[in-house]
Amino acid sequence: MSLVCLITAMTAEARPLIESFNLKALPQKGLSAWVGEGVCLVQTGMGQQRAESRIDALLANQLGISAFINVGIAGGKRQLGDVIIASSVHDQLSGKTWYPHLPPSSVLSTANSSTISSTNFSDDSSEDAFADTFENEQASCAVDHCAVISVPEPCEHYRSDCVYDMEASAVINTTSKHTDLSRIQTVKVISDNPDNPLDDFSVKNVTPLMCNTLPLVTALVDWLSAESAARDVQDFRGQVNTLVTHITGLCHHSVTETHQLRRYLERFLALNGELPTLEQLGQLNSSQALLQRLNDELNNHAVNY
């Protein structure tokens, strides 16, 4: 089962997501992570280094994560509560830029967001505000996209063509070692702007703001879970790997032989639509004999149209 992993920095950012996706805490010391049906979440703490180390720690659990969504707050010259999806993520320190492969417009058009005005979140923390916001009729406005610039320190140079955050680049830098850029998305909600600068910012405001991201995050989770090309390859490889593990457990194969075995079995599955049974493979007492047998089978496979 493959999971979509949500990544947030703060507890207040994580909470609406944990509730919305009905996630349960993953009992692991030193790691704030939750898991549910098709979705997991890791809360990394603030800053780039923490983001990298916590994501690595989560991935070490081999949960079967196949996609990532970084969700959090950001500053920009936009309305408080506006939600954007990142069309690019730029790391201000290294100068590196990533361009995620964005989902089809149809995915985003199902994810209309509502905007919380600055008057209704100031004192209204917690679940009630979250529930109200999420359950109310959503205002119909398309999800906007823009550049996300990750900065090492909080910054108040608000611009209209980008938003500033502190983790997105670390998240994309780490996760892009595990999957491709169509399976890593970044969603930000505006938490400070020129009229509501960082000095006025309170962590209490974060949870209701994050509620605005839920329609988009839900749509992205659905899309990433259903995406067939990646799933097909993953399922295909999964079947082959299971058999490889089984065979190499019964009969020693060197590293090179294991690679060869894997590719032979992939080819077998591609050509026949199913893997060979253990009976078909015969006695598993020699890796060389097994590879030879598979190679012969593959060479003799009928190709007809």
Binding site: W98, Y99, H101, P103, P104, S176, K177, T179, D180, L181, S182, R183, E227, S228, A229, A230, V233
Partner: peptide, 12 residues
Amino acid sequence: QSAQNFRQQKQQ
């Protein structure tokens, strides 16, 4: 750029 997937992108 690195970390792209031709097959995936070909869908859209």
